[in-house]
Amino acid sequence: MKKLLSLGLLALAISACRPEPFKEIGAPYSVITGINGNWDLEMVEVEDRSFPQWETLEFTDFFLDNPVSINFNSNDNTYAISANSLDGLPFSSLNGTYAFDDPEYPENLYLISTDGDTSTVGMGNMVRAIDPNMIFEELKNKCDAEYARYIYTFKRSN
Rank of each mutant, 00 (worst) to 15 (best):
K2D: 12
L4P: 03
L4K: 08
L4E: 13
S6A: 14
S6G: 11
L7H: 06
L10A: 15
L10M: 13
A11M: 12
A11E: 03
L12A: 15
L12S: 13
S15K: 02
A16K: 01
A16E: 07
C17Q: 09
C17Y: 07
P21M: 00
E24C: 02
I25H: 01
G26A: 06
A27S: 08
Y29M: 10
S30W: 00
N36E: 03
N36C: 01
G37S: 05
W39C: 03
W39L: 01
D40V: 03
E42I: 00
V44K: 07
V46Y: 06
E47Y: 00
E47M: 11
D48P: 04
D48E: 12
S50P: 06
Q53G: 02
E55G: 01
E58D: 14
E58Q: 10
F59A: 01
F62K: 06
L64T: 08
D65Y: 12
N66I: 01
N66E: 13
S69I: 00
I70R: 08
N71V: 13
N71L: 11
F72K: 08
F72V: 06
D76V: 11
I81T: 08
S82Q: 14
N84D: 15
N84T: 09
L86P: 07
G88T: 04
P90W: 01
F91V: 06
F91H: 08
S93A: 14
L94F: 13
L94M: 10
L94Y: 11
N95V: 02
N95Y: 04
G96C: 05
Y98D: 10
Y98M: 05
F100M: 09
F100G: 08
F100R: 01
D102L: 00
D102Y: 00
D102Q: 01
D102R: 00
D102W: 00
P103Q: 00
E107V: 00
Y110H: 06
I112M: 06
D115M: 08
G116R: 07
T118L: 04
M123S: 07
G124C: 11
G124H: 09
N125E: 14
M126Y: 11
M126H: 14
A129I: 04
P132Y: 08
F136K: 02
E137F: 02
L139E: 15
K142T: 12
C143E: 15
C143N: 15
D144L: 10
A145N: 14
E146I: 05
Y147F: 15
Y147E: 14
A148R: 10
Y150W: 08
Y150L: 10
I151P: 05
Y152D: 04
Y152F: 13
Y152H: 05
T153Y: 04
R156D: 13
S157N: 11
